[in-house]
Amino acid sequence: MKQSKWKSIPFLLPSLLGMVVLSLLPIAIAIVLSFTDWNGLDKLNLTTIRNEFVGFKNYISILGSAEFWQVLGHTVYYIVLYLPLAMLASMGIALLLNKGRKGTAFFRVIYYIPVLTSWVAASLIWKWVLSSKYGIINNLLALVGITGPAWLSSPVWAMPGIVLASVWKDMGFYGLFLLSGLTAINTTYYEAAKVDGAGKLTMFFKITLPLVTPTLFFCLIMSLINAFQLFPQVQIMTEGGPNGATRVVVERIYTYGFSYFKMGFASAYSWLLFLIIFILTLVQFKLQNGWVHYES
């Protein structure tokens, strides 16, 4: 459309101002802070920054600390348990809903209720569901003769407990997402396969799975990014415990920043988080050629 370049400025102005004040400026401050040991209390100005400048000390001490690597280890533990479970469960949901049988609308709503529940409520519910003596899970397990673990109060079982809660909460979200991928598959493929006498399993592995890989790829990227930003469920269910067994990156950033007021240290932590997410996403994009099929 023909118009002077400058006539578009009023439409962009709120958003641009917002970007400068709420995103670019904070990013710049975050970079500067990560090189200081600012305590959050001294008035933040150039003199303070000059006086409290520490160079790469924060980064070096984080990377050199055993804690950082433990925290990363916990996140990896979470991901190894969470990803396969969440993807299987949401794929199951998507396949069920894709059949289009009677009752689909009802099941769709049911599976989405956990997604609508806030993490605070969901975490409180699961904390009680996983209670070792009075929780419903261990009592259900007892019915079939299994003695359930102590879940959140056991260093070994606390993370699997958090994983269960997370899979339960997220599977509807990724399920509906995958469903949209499934419904987009051209039905002529199935018809052709049927004519050739292909069985159900063959059709699933040769048609459905390859053609849904772009959506699956997107779900993987999103869930990996989210996994590294794990926070409310940990904060409410275990507060990083027992004995630090469920400490994760964002929980550390929050604790260092707002409990210990080591704002510079926490900022450096957050940039390392960014680096990890950034590199992982890049790697995934590079790897996608190996397994993601785009219809040409």
């Binding site: 118009q3 370049k5 970007m19 995103s23 904070p26 930003q229 957050s270 960014f274």
Partner: peptide, 28 residues
């Protein structure tokens, strides 16, 4: 619409999406 430096501005928008909210938490 025609926007001055459209490409640069829009890439800036995309770039900010990559920064996790935790990074800007303290400065904000």
């Amino acid at each position: 619409l025609a926007v001055p430096c459209k490409k640069v501005l829009f890439s800036l928008y995309i770039a900010t999406m990559m920064i996790p909210t935790q990074v800007t938490l303290i400065p904000l």
